[in-house]
């Protein structure tokens, strides 16, 4: 599914290298957790994969089903099945959540050569998925993320994921700012989406999210590279011992 080879990336304008030869292979249907100390480059990895402006890839490739996604613009990556659940989802005044979801879904369908979804089908789809995530009608009518609480924003991200049905889901610190109930709702939403043809990269600083979303593989990211890989037990070990062994230098 995803194969990252020797990925080097830096922050544009600053020229500071954050990812320094990162290698990672995620197979279909797998859930990979990426953990690491602050400044290891976890969020940078998610941003670079999604194509956020402000980073420069200086070397390496990220192949999604054999195609390098790094040259694609963000919308094309999305059409190819990449989805980033943001750590800080932005507010978009003036664009109703519903309108946004429909525009995104149809844009992706169009890019894949599919017909637009009919309005009744769309409404049904949204209502079903929103219900699972306890997202109210009111939240759907309001502008995207405007006036949402931290937990509501994260649930809204998972709703988008459920509607857009991506191949590769990247969850960037999805647990940050969530209380235990919200964490449960979000995790259940993610777990429900696990499927043989869908992979997850779960980026987190803490083990607690992994109690709810059980990973197949756990990686430790430090100073811009994967330095250790193991099973779920690795996460527990990190929880117990901390990141002292992987002390990071200053990085974003």
């Amino acid at each position: 599914m995803l194969e990252i080879k020797n990925l080097h990336a830096e922050i544009e304008n600053e020229g500071r290298e954050i990812l320094r030869g990162l290698d990672l292979v995620v197979k279909s249907g797998e859930v990979h957790a990426i953990m690491g100390p602050n400044g290891a480059g976890k969020s940078t990895l998610s941003h670079v994969l999604a194509g956020k402006p402000g980073y420069r890839v200086t070397d390496g490739a990220a192949m999604l089903d054999g195609v390098d996604i790094l040259d694609m613009d963000p919308s094309l990556r999305a059409a190819n099945g990449v989805f980033l659940a943001f750590q800080y989802p932005v507010e978009i005044p003036g664009v109703a959540n519903m309108t946004f979801l429909k525009a995104a879904l149809n844009a992706q369908r169009k890019a894949r050569g599919q017909d637009e979804i009919s309005t009744p089908d769309f409404m049904r789809l949204v209502r079903t998925e929103a219900g699972k995530l306890k997202i109210t009608q009111d939240m759907l009518k309001r502008p995207v993320n405007v006036g949402f609480s931290g937990g509501e924003k994260k649930r809204n991200e998972i709703l988008q994921m459920a509607i857009l049905q991506p191949k590769l889901c990247i969850l960037d610190e999805t647990d940050s700012g969530l209380d235990i109930d919200a964490l449960k709702v979000v995790s259940d939403g993610v777990n429900a989406l696990r499927a043989p043809n869908r992979s997850f990269i779960v980026i987190t600083h803490y083990q607690r999210l992994l109690d709810h979303i059980r990973p197949d593989v756990v990686h430790v990211l430090s100073k811009g590279r994967i330095v250790k890989t193991g099973g779920p037990e690795l996460a527990l070990e990190l929880e117990a011992k901390g990141y002292a062994d992987y002390a990071s230098e200053e990085a974003a």
């Binding site: 999604a50 194509g51 956020k52 402006p53 963000p74 919308s75 999305a78 980033l84 946004f100």
Partner: peptide
């Protein structure tokens, strides 16, 4: 970027 990351063309 947010909109594009959800697949909406530029």
């Amino acid at each position: 970027f947010y909109l594009m990351s959800r697949g909406i063309p530029a």
